[in-house]
Design a protein around this nucleic acid. Sequence first.
DNA 1: ATGAAAGCGCTAACAA
DNA 2: TTGTTAGCGCTTTCAT
Lengths: 352, 352
Amino acid sequence: MKGMTDTQNGADAARPSRVTVKDIAREAGVSIATVSRAISNDPGIAADTRRRVLQKATDMGYSPNLFARGLITRKSGIVAVFANNIINPFYPEVMVNLTRALQDRQMHTLLFTSDGDEQVERALPTLRQLNPDVAVVLAATMTSGALDNFAESRTPVILFNRYVDGAAASSVCCDNFEAGRMVAHRLAASGHRRLAFIEGLATASTNADRRRGFTRGCAEAGLAPPAVHAGGDFTYETGYTGVQALIARTGAIDAVFCANDIIAIGAMDAARGSLGLSIPDDLSVIGFDDIAMASWPSHDLTTVRQPMNAMIDRVMSEIGRIRDSATAPPEKHFLPGRLMVRGSARLNEERT
Amino acid sequence: MKGMTDTQNGADAARPSRVTVKDIAREAGVSIATVSRAISNDPGIAADTRRRVLQKATDMGYSPNLFARGLITRKSGIVAVFANNIINPFYPEVMVNLTRALQDRQMHTLLFTSDGDEQVERALPTLRQLNPDVAVVLAATMTSGALDNFAESRTPVILFNRYVDGAAASSVCCDNFEAGRMVAHRLAASGHRRLAFIEGLATASTNADRRRGFTRGCAEAGLAPPAVHAGGDFTYETGYTGVQALIARTGAIDAVFCANDIIAIGAMDAARGSLGLSIPDDLSVIGFDDIAMASWPSHDLTTVRQPMNAMIDRVMSEIGRIRDSATAPPEKHFLPGRLMVRGSARLNEERT
DNA sequence: ATGAAAGCGCTAACAA
DNA sequence: TTGTTAGCGCTTTCAT
């Protein structure tokens, strides 16, 4: 690849600097406009010329300068991804899979951290500087104030696993409410009577919806409202101390549904360790996300799997929709989760 | 912020499109060249004019268009980060911390996935298109062939936790060899006699160095060479099946050192579960990385902590060095790991 | 110390 | 169908 010098001109073979449209135009004996047309698949060009120009471009190892292009088109091909909550392995995985999907479509991922609104705000100048076509927010928390900032920078926003009601932002979410409801019903149908919920971050809509759905499900099944360990965060410690606090406060419980897998694993460890409970005989534990760890034999955690790939696909089509028309109204998508039945919860067969 | 319209001209107050140097020049009554000088801290400008221009720029909410700037300066302020190996939570954390550090310095993280060389190769056109100032490779594996591709795209490369001998790339690594050696000595000094090692990916230099250091340490301590479970990957399953295979093949062992924490956790689960061993009484287990999970009570894993923040700092200074002089020769940096003593290994006090 | 003007590499009118 | 030309927003000579 490096050794071949089969291009006719020996003149500038030694100058390895960037190949530009101008170079191709010269080599192919056409104008730079024609080169541009060939590259951008413009309909108004002779199929033959196009082929010839494209061939030359390939031969010469051309790749367009996106800065120059972006300067004119005002499209960057860049997607800004905001990530925090890196403690939960679910999100890095989303990030990487999303990046892969973007890469496949010749788009680019610009990564931002956003632990706290001030980080988001600090990123905004950059947003204007690099002009991403769209921002994807992978974050448990994001105040609507921070969202306004995006609006001000005129970048369309897609929220992943979060929605904000009045906001001009699309959302792609797991149907957290429905999943919580379903968990309550499954537990009730399997004979559990005293249910509990361990919260993650109270302000996260994922957390709130799972809790609300679970509470609703309990009511529908004729059970008492679940005991709730409130106001934690999405960490192991929350689960660990949460289950201890719940049992200290409310006495025995049959089952605990946790706002995510990390919390659930913490809860299991405390239940088995310091509380000496047997799982699932004394206590059923159910988590949310289905991270890799959930299926490890040490915990064998029953959990709600988020349809990650479907969610990412949906994000991609939202991105397409937004690129096609700048004025596309925001849409909210909710995709169903699925219960992965494993050993940490005593569940009957699902009746159909 | 949105309500204030204190700029003198009511004319285009309604046009919220981008503020450019031209706008500032007009408002400040200077030429665009002067504006540019003010912004880029050019010495040849009157301190007074500069202040005035900068003030106007701030008032008008100006932020420079990096595309236009990059077109001329050939510096993008972009750092390409290649990540795979997302199974190991160590790397997402590096990724986010690195991004934070870059953000603080007004630089930008462009994320690429690179599971396999072909992904790297597919990313190369983009590399040329967006012209990152430097590429950081956070990857357990990267063939030197893939590295040549970088060279061809004229992007300086910094390898994180990996080095390639002849390659024109800087490296920032934990001193994996030394850490492996130290682990062997600590185990030997605590009375362990029959040591074993569970490999991750054999082709990863992290893995190879940890193994070589460990083997060397065994020899220095007068122990037999460690039994090695070879040719796995950096997964829980490798640890789980690895420890079973080791014991089936070699009989009892005192201690097992694992190529990373995830493997170690798998090994612990198998040892305690299917093998019915007690840890650390029957078997000491030591991992590598010190991921969050390692300190959870369920595993309480003794492990070598990588000096993540120091490593990231070093990457940042390498980036600075490269930006300052394009011809800066590549450097290799090795930073010491530190043993985090927890409950999974029977270790005596360190003798000093 | 400042301004005028050229041009980075590309696309998008407008002509031909 | 193709070429000419005018910028996108910025930095950077070269004058002044």
